[in-house]
Design a protein around this nucleic acid. Structure first.
Lengths: 242, 242
DNA sequence: CAGATTTGGCCCGTAATTGGTTCAAGTTCA
DNA sequence: TGAACTTGAACCAATTACGGGCCAAATCTG
């Protein structure tokens, strides 16, 4: 191959101590990565596949991959493959996952602290007897859990959602739904599970039971008090993580 | 396994340190779920069926299902099956307009009454000097309006949005954004305009000015007091409509 | 109710794939 | 000629995929 061919402007990843063919392979692969043909996180074809596709020897492909790896564009793992680590500009997360990523556990607790007491207040007033019956069913499921933190979180979510819908205020319910989603899609659920010991599950079950009793007897202030207590409990847990 | 696996850019559910074949199965199943081939709540084929249909080993299917379950897209129950928990976008189209239609002006005011005082409180504490400068600019625009109610509403919205973002809590800001949207898409803005006489605009401008002064001087309690006063003002107006 | 069936949960050994390494020979060009 | 680059091949170690078997839970069936 001629020494001075291929001097395109896209030659961002350059290395003066490599051969011409290697540089061509580098440019070709990097162009594919930039164009999202191989998006971040994906595994690119095996070295043997690439060598046959590009019509070059496997060692040449390897030299090119060496450069790309040294530039932190890919990461290789023996037996597994070569994975793209390059973040393209076009990689823009959708609004919901973006929200989830930008929302810290503290942000989440703050919003819950604002919404939940008023939510409970409205729910106590506006829930129908049927709503309360359904909430009772959910509580039964919640109390059936002993160790499986995943099951517990699911039931907990249903419990809160029922209360949110029980307010009769769809806008408020949607706001709370936003908070749930922002929390679900993050690492927080994983963090939570670690701290959701059977003992703590039992504590929460007691608290939710008390909350339900206050709701079903239409005792607004007591219900609000219980939800605030529970929020404080969660704040403690968050601080303990540090 | 196939010699070279197709790796299109539609790889939404990504997981590093996952094998190539497993990733293909993940993409395939998630695509079916998104396309409503397996709607929410349905049971997808058994692992053994899937493995024979997709031509991969059952363990590979299981690895893929593990990822989907960890992403809260499916839920598995031993002896029962794997169930879709993912809520497809197509399943709830116009969720925003539907929300707007179901949200009454009273609902809207209730939510604002819950969010805005705490929002202002956080904003006073967390806004940067730059934020306050920009809020000042918006206020200037707001005070320039004399009769055009449409211009006034736009500036008003920008004013509130700036405060919401000034809290530094993206989740809280998103909740408020939801409230703004729910209000914008309804008849309410039309109703509002009828009552937005030049005289009333002037009253509001005075109130917003006072609110801004409290914010810029970091006077938390005064700022909260002003926003509450303004909310009461709006409540009055709503009641006058009958 | 009791047994059979289906389903997910789990384990292990084997085979295939993949990157890691080395070496020798061919090619290009100064 | 000599130095550089490329090629082809072989072998190794890590990882993954496969196939099968067995279990427990849930469901179906008689």
């Amino acid at each position: 191959m001629a020494p001075h061919t291929q001097r395109t402007a896209s030659q961002i990843v350059t290395n003066h101590s490599v051969g011409a063919t290697v540089q061509v392979v580098i440019d070709s692969l990097f162009a594919r990565i930039k164009s999202e043909e191989y998006p971040e996180g994906t595994r690119l074809p095996s070295e043997r596949t690439l060598s046959s596709e590009l019509g070059v020897a496997r060692n040449t492909v390897r030299d090119a991959l060496d450069v790309l790896e040294s530039r932190n564009i890919i990461r290789r793992r023996a037996g597994s493959g070569s994975f793209v680590t390059y973040k393209s500009e076009a990689a823009r997360p959708d609004s919901r996952t973006a929200l989830a990523e930008n929302t810290s556990p503290l942000d989440h607790l703050v919003v819950r602290g604002i919404l939940e007491p008023e939510m409970v207040r409205l729910a106590v007033i506006n829930m129908t007897p049927r709503d309360i019956m359904e909430l009772d069913d959910i509580l039964t499921q919640l109390e059936a859990v002993t160790t499986d933190s995943s099951d517990f979180i699911k039931a907990e979510e249903a419990f809160y959602r029922k209360i949110a819908n029980g307010t009769g205020n769809p806008l408020l319910a949607s706001c709370y739904e936003l908070a749930i989603e922002a929390c679900l899609q993050t690492f927080r659920s994983n963090l939570m599970r670690r701290h959701l010991t059977p003992k703590r599950i039992e504590v929460y079950q007691t608290q939710y039971n008390a909350l339900f009793n206050a709701i079903s007897s239409r005792d607004v202030e007591t219900a609000v008090e219980y939800i605030k207590l529970h929020l404080i409990e969660e704040q403690k847990m968050l601080l303990q993580e540090g």
